[in-house]
Design a protein around this nucleic acid. Structure first.
Length: 245
DNA sequence: TGCCATGTTAAACT
DNA sequence: GAGTTTAACATGGC
C-alpha cells in the first residue's frame, strides 16, 4: 500500500467525508479520542507517506508504515487491529495497524511541502540544492530520504534508478549534472506513473526490475542486494546501470 | 512453516 | 554526546 501515490489514492477515497461531522470515535490509538467528537473534518492533506486529517483546533496524522490499511464505511478487520475509526452520519473511516497521532498547527507549519514529489508545490530546484549538500550520499539513500523526496519508497527507488540507468550505490556527488537532474525529474515522473497504474490495478505488471530476476534490456540476471544506509533491497542490472563511484 | 517486505522510530550499542 | 546498529511494531504472501 504505502508509497506516496497510494496515499494520494487514499486521500481521494476519503474525500467524501470532508465537511462532515464526526459522530463517534474509537480504536486503540493512544490519544484522547473524545476531542474529535462533534468536530468537522475540514480538510485532508498529504505529505509524502503521511496523511493529515485537519480539524479546527487539531489534526490527526496517519502513517501506514509497512502494513497499514484502511477501509471505508465498513469495518473489515477485528476490533483488536482497529487503530482508529471515525464514524460520520453516512459511513465512516477505519484505519488498521498504522501509526496515528495528533499534530498541532505548529507541527504542520514546519513541514516542507515543497519536498513532496506528488505535490503541486514540489520544487525540483530545492531538491537539487539539498542533494548538492550531500555529495557523499548514495543515490539509493537519497531517493529514500523523506526530507528530499517525500513519498518515494523502495519500489519507486528501484524503478527510477533503472529508468535513468544509474547503479544504486552511485554517489550523488559523482553524478554528472544531467544525471542529477534526471534523477530528480524521474522521481516525480515515475511516481505519477505509479499513481496511474495503481489506480488501474496494473502497477505490478509495469515493474521492470523490482522483484524481477532478469534485465528487460539485455536479458542478463539482475543483481538483488541490500544497499545503502537503509539496507533496503535493490534490484539492478550491472550492464545497463552505471556505477558512478 | 519460516522468512521476508511498499516504513519509521526508539533503544541500545560503540 | 555523536554516530551507528539493532529491535520493535505488525500483517499477509509465498
Amino acid at each position: 500500500m504505502p508509497e506516496g501515490p497510494s496515499i494520494i489514492l487514499m486521500k481521494e477515497n476519503l474525500q467524501k467525508f470532508v465537511g462532515k461531522k464526526v459522530l463517534e470515535v474509537s480504536g486503540n490509538a493512544k490519544f484522547d479520542k473524545e476531542i474529535l467528537e462533534k468536530k468537522i473534518l475540514r480538510e485532508i492533506r498529504t505529505f509524502g507517506k503521511q496523511t493529515y486529517l485537519i480539524f479546527d483546533e487539531t489534526a490527526v496524522r496517519i502513517h501506514l508504515l509497512m502494513f497499514g490499511t484502511y477501509s471505508i464505511d465498513e469495518q473489515t478487520k477485528p476490533d483488536q487491529q482497529l487503530r482508529l475509526s471515525l464514524i460520520f452520519k453516512d459511513g465512516g473511516i477505519y484505519f488498521y495497524t498504522c501509526n496515528v497521532k495528533l499534530a498541532d498547527s505548529e507541527f504542520l507549519s514546519k513541514i516542507d511541502w515543497e519536498a513532496d514529489v506528488m505535490s503541486n508545490a514540489w520544487n525540483p530546484e530545492k531538491a537539487e540544492k539539498k542533494l548538492k549538500t550531500n555529495p557523499g550520499m548514495m543515490v539509493c539513500d537519497a531517493l529514500m530520504n523523506q526530507d528530499i523526496f517525500s513519498g518515494v519508497g523502495n519500489i519507486i527507488k528501484n524503478e527510477v534508478l533503472f529508468r535513468i540507468a544509474v547503479q544504486p550505490e552511485s554517489l550523488i556527488g559523482n553524478l554528472p549534472s544531467k544525471k542529477l537532474k534526471e534523477l530528480i525529474a524521474e522521481a516525480r515522473n515515475y511516481s505519477f506513473d505509479f499513481l496511474k497504474w495503481k489506480r488501474d490495478f496494473v502497477l505490478k505488471q509495469h515493474w521492470l526490475v523490482h522483484t524481477k530476476s532478469t534485465c528487460p534490456i539485455c536479458g542478463e540476471k539482475l543483481v538483488k542486494k541490500q544497499t545503502g544506509l537503509g539496507k533496503r533491497r535493490s534490484f539492478y542490472c550491472e550492464k545497463d546501470q552505471k556505477l558512478y563511484q
